[in-house]
Every structure is written in C-alpha cells, then in structure tokens.
C-alpha cells in the first residue's frame, strides 16, 4: 500500500498553526543528502528543487526529523493540545 493511502487511514485534527518550520532554506539548498526527505516516516518533507516544502498536517509526531537533520535546521515541536494525529489503536 502506498504511503499516502496509509496516511489517509489515520485520523487527524489539523491545526492551522504549523508546528514545524525550516530555520533556513539556504541551509537546505546546500544540504547534499536531504535525509529528512527520505527517513521521515510520513514523508512530511519534500524538496521541490528550490526549497523544502513541509506538509506538517501529515505529521504523525514521532520526532525523528529533529534527530535526522545534520544541521539542526528543522524547528519541530508538537501540535498544540488537542490537535494533530489522534491514534485509534496506537
């Protein structure tokens, strides 16, 4: 099953307030491997050729992105109370 179909199964309460941001797109432009675009299990990060696009509303809140970024260039917190993913099974 494709990842986007799997994410469609999860229940989200989207927050209009983004809980993830890129500190500096210049750093992303110079980053050779862009590991966030590979290892994030929800593929929240996508390089469009010019900048890193962050689909924070798909975030399933594992926290791995902060550890993955070699330049500490991802400012990731958690969605505000009550927002974000709501696991039915866990």
């Amino acid at each position: 099953m494709k990842l986007e179909d799997k994410l469609f199964l999860d229940r989200f309460k989207p927050d209009e307030h983004a809980h993830i941001s890129i500190v500096s797109q210049d750093v992303c432009a110079r980053c050779p491997d862009k590991p966030c675009t590979i290892v994030c299990p929800a593929e929240v990060y996508h390089w469009d050729g010019e900048k890193t696009v962050v689909s924070y509303e798909n975030c399933i809140e594992c926290g791995a992105c902060r550890l993955i970024c070699p330049y500490n260039n991802i400012a990731c917190t958690m969605p505000r109370g009550g927002f974000g993913v709501q696991y039915k099974y866990g």
């Binding site: 990842l3 594992c62 926290g63 791995a64 696991y87 099974y89």
Partner: peptide, 9 residues
C-alpha cells in the same frame, strides 16, 4: 485490512 499507520521513536 490495514486500519492504521503509526510511527514512534
């Protein structure tokens, strides 16, 4: 039938 996909550290 897949019901949920999750991730955790």
């Amino acid at each position: 039938e897949i019901k949920e996909y999750s991730a955790h550290l």
